[in-house]
Measured scan of single mutants.
Amino acid sequence: KKVTINGVEIKFNNPEEAVKFALELAKRLNLRIEFHGDQIKIE
């Protein structure tokens, strides 16, 4: 399963991993996060 985070394609074994990764990243950098299907936007 491929997920695009800020235009960067990252391959994950499952979608939950991708979501956890994105949330952790957003929390660490104190950023806002948006989900659009397989696209995750962090700003």
Rank of each mutant, 00 (worst) to 15 (best):
Q39W: 14
I40E: 01
K11T: 12
N30W: 11
L25K: 00
A22F: 14
E34A: 05
K27E: 09
K20Y: 10
I10T: 02
N30E: 05
G7D: 03
R28H: 09
E9M: 11
I33D: 00
D38G: 07
E43P: 02
I5G: 04
D38Y: 06
P15A: 13
G37E: 11
N13M: 12
V19G: 02
N14F: 12
F12T: 02
L23C: 15
A22K: 00
E9I: 13
V8P: 02
E34K: 06
F21K: 04
R32M: 08
I10N: 02
I42Y: 00
G37V: 07
E43G: 12
K20R: 12
F21G: 02
I40N: 01
A26Q: 02
E34G: 03
N14R: 07
V8D: 01
E24C: 15
I5T: 02
N13R: 13
E43H: 12
I5K: 02
Q39M: 13
I40T: 01
I33W: 05
L29Q: 02
R28Y: 11
G7P: 05
A18P: 02
L23Y: 08
E9K: 06
F35A: 02
L29V: 04
I40C: 08
A22L: 15
A18H: 03
L31W: 05
H36G: 07
K27P: 03
L29M: 07
F35W: 12
A26N: 01
E9R: 07
E16V: 11
I33R: 00
K1V: 15
K2S: 12
A18K: 03
A22G: 02
K2F: 11
K1P: 13
E16A: 10
D38K: 05
K27W: 05
A26T: 03
L29P: 01
T4W: 13
R32N: 07
N13S: 11
E34P: 01
I10V: 05
E9C: 15
L25C: 11
N13V: 07
L25P: 00
I5P: 03
E17W: 14
R32A: 06
N14L: 11
E34L: 07
E24R: 04
K1D: 07
N14T: 14
Q39A: 10
T4I: 14
E17G: 06
H36E: 11
V19S: 03
H36M: 13
F12W: 05
L23H: 04
E24A: 10
I5A: 03
I10G: 00
A26K: 01
P15G: 10
N13C: 14
L25E: 01
E9Y: 09
K2Y: 11
F12V: 04
I33H: 00
A22Q: 00
E24S: 05
L23E: 11
K27T: 07
T4V: 14
G37R: 04
E9H: 09
N14Y: 10
L23R: 04
I5E: 02
N13I: 11
F21W: 13
K2H: 08
E43A: 09
V19R: 09
L31Q: 00
T4A: 04
N13Q: 09
